[in-house]
Amino acid sequence: MDDPIQGKPPTFWQMLQSVLAAAFGVQTGKNRARDFNHGKASHFIALGTLFTLLFILALVGLVQLAMHLTAP
Results as ranks from 00 to 15, higher is better:
28 T>L: 10
3 D>Y: 01
43 H>Y: 14
58 A>W: 03
14 Q>A: 08
34 R>E: 06
52 T>Y: 08
49 T>D: 11
20 L>T: 03
48 G>N: 05
5 I>Y: 05
20 L>E: 09
33 A>C: 12
65 L>V: 12
7 G>A: 06
17 Q>N: 06
19 V>Q: 02
1 M>D: 00
25 G>K: 08
29 G>H: 10
27 Q>I: 12
65 L>D: 06
14 Q>C: 05
9 P>Y: 00
63 V>P: 00
45 I>L: 15
61 G>F: 01
65 L>M: 13
66 A>M: 09
40 K>G: 06
26 V>Q: 15
69 L>Q: 07
9 P>G: 04
66 A>V: 09
34 R>A: 14
13 W>A: 15
9 P>Q: 03
5 I>G: 00
15 M>G: 01
6 Q>G: 03
47 L>Y: 02
65 L>E: 07
44 F>T: 03
6 Q>A: 12
6 Q>D: 08
17 Q>E: 07
32 R>I: 08
22 A>Q: 11
56 I>C: 10
26 V>Y: 15
49 T>S: 11
42 S>M: 13
35 D>Q: 13
27 Q>T: 12
15 M>Y: 01
20 L>G: 03
48 G>K: 02
30 K>P: 01
61 G>Y: 01
32 R>A: 15
69 L>E: 05
69 L>V: 01
27 Q>M: 15
1 M>Q: 01
61 G>R: 02
13 W>I: 11
56 I>P: 01
14 Q>E: 15
8 K>F: 08
42 S>N: 09
40 K>W: 11
45 I>H: 11
15 M>P: 00
13 W>P: 02
67 M>I: 05
